[in-house]
Design a protein around this nucleic acid. Structure first.
Lengths: 226, 226
DNA sequence: ATGTGTGAATCGCTTCACAGCT
DNA sequence: AGCTGTGAAGCGATTCACACAT
């Protein structure tokens, strides 16, 4: 069979896309499997994974099947092996070099967020333009001057930028970030960023989540009457 | 017509649910319309709303149609009116009393997050169990002792709790929060909370977003080769 | 007996396309 | 002419159900 270039997803024939919802669940499975491995659990079934997170077992199996066959019929999945596989799928088998832009309260919090470090996201840089913040310590990092963004990004070999500046400054900062050898951006500013097509961008919006919450609070017991 | 009890969504007959994706977009439309009103723009079409956010005009119209008919054929939507309507739909026509639990870096950042205040989320309370943090100032608030959670929640008439404590403490804190007259919970701890069915809970997970980002970085140019 | 992997069926969201209002 | 509001069509995600492996 010579060349065994297994494409990650060979389920359907011509270029079948994995749903984003599947990727999000993969990340949730990963977190769960992590804790199971830490607890010394060796084996787990799709049904157990599902019920622990509120999904069906079929959902779990279908999600995993996009990437391969990691279980054994009649037995379930080996936690250690599954953890390793999901890490590879999500890109967590690798240390990512991350810069946080903006040393306000959100930026500082993100720079010290332990979940990031635990999953291979190494925060190597935090930048701001406020002379009052430059030079301050944030965890083990010193806030650097954003004027030196390009040089600092190159020196630290940054892969990912987290934008944590006010909305009005976000596009300006982004325009400079995209000239570096960055691969992706996670944007916490509540605005639509324009980026070149070779980059990946994800939007995080905490106020949006709160608004979805209030919608559901308002519309909770709508099914109980009328 | 006498009793004009218009159910919000009367589009389909028996109890048609609004997709969560629609709610999320409503929140995005709201943010956009807000800036337009601030700029003095009076009228806008579904096509303009759509292209500014990367949706189709049909998507925008369909989303709005779940809740009523807010536009005028041939003209579009009045921004001021649309803003008012969406605010009412999402529950933003109302001041929500919010408590942040956990005065670590994430909790402190959330307590001061200007987007919350701008959208009617009034942070009235920040709590922690660490004697080193109790009594400290976070913005205009003083960190209170979590031992007094029930009393402080009652005094401040808290509607919504934001959980920003480490995962291991999240369920314990939640078990106390759910005994108050709270309506909803926004959970930043990376864990599955168990809550009584009368409450609404939303999960926020920043590490998950970063993992989805790295997945897409890895799988970006998958379609260009093979 | 148990639990995976997966085509087929189902469900629900998005897009189309056009009638109807301004 | 221009743009909304909305059934119907299209399409993508979830669930079903069962062959197959242990």
């Amino acid at each position: 069979m010579g060349r065994k270039k297994i494409r990650h997803y060979d389920s359907d024939s011509p270029l079948m896309q994995v749903p984003e919802s599947t990727i999000r669940r993969m990340s949730m499975y990963y977190r769960l499997i992590e804790t199971l491995v830490a607890k010394g659990v060796d084996q787990i079934s799709s049904d157990e994974i599902g019920t622990m997170q509120g999904f069906t077992s079929a959902q779990v199996r279908k999600d995993l099947s996009f990437f391969g066959s990691f279980g054994r019929r009649g037995l379930g999945y080996n936690t250690r092996e599954l953890k390793r596989q999901i890490a590879a799928i999500l890109g967590l088998d690798h240390i990512w070099h991350v810069a946080v832009i903006g040393a306000g309260s959100i930026g500082s919090a993100l720079a010290q967020y332990p979940e990031f470090a635990d999953h291979g996201f190494q925060i190597r840089l935090i930048l701001d333009n406020d002379p009052g913040k430059i030079g301050r310590q944030v965890g083990s990092l010193t806030v650097k001057d954003i004027a030196r963004l390009e040089a600092e990004f190159a020196a630290a070999a940054i892969d990912i930028a987290i934008i944590a500046v006010p909305a009005r400054a976000a596009q300006l900062v982004t325009d400079r970030v995209v000239t570096t050898s960055i691969r992706g951006i996670l944007n916490f500013a509540p605005c639509q960023l324009i980026i070149p097509p070779h980059l990946v961008m994800r939007q995080e919006n905490m106020a949006l989540e709160l608004e979805v919450l209030t919608y559901f609070i308002r519309n909770k017991n709508r099914d109980s009457i009328d």
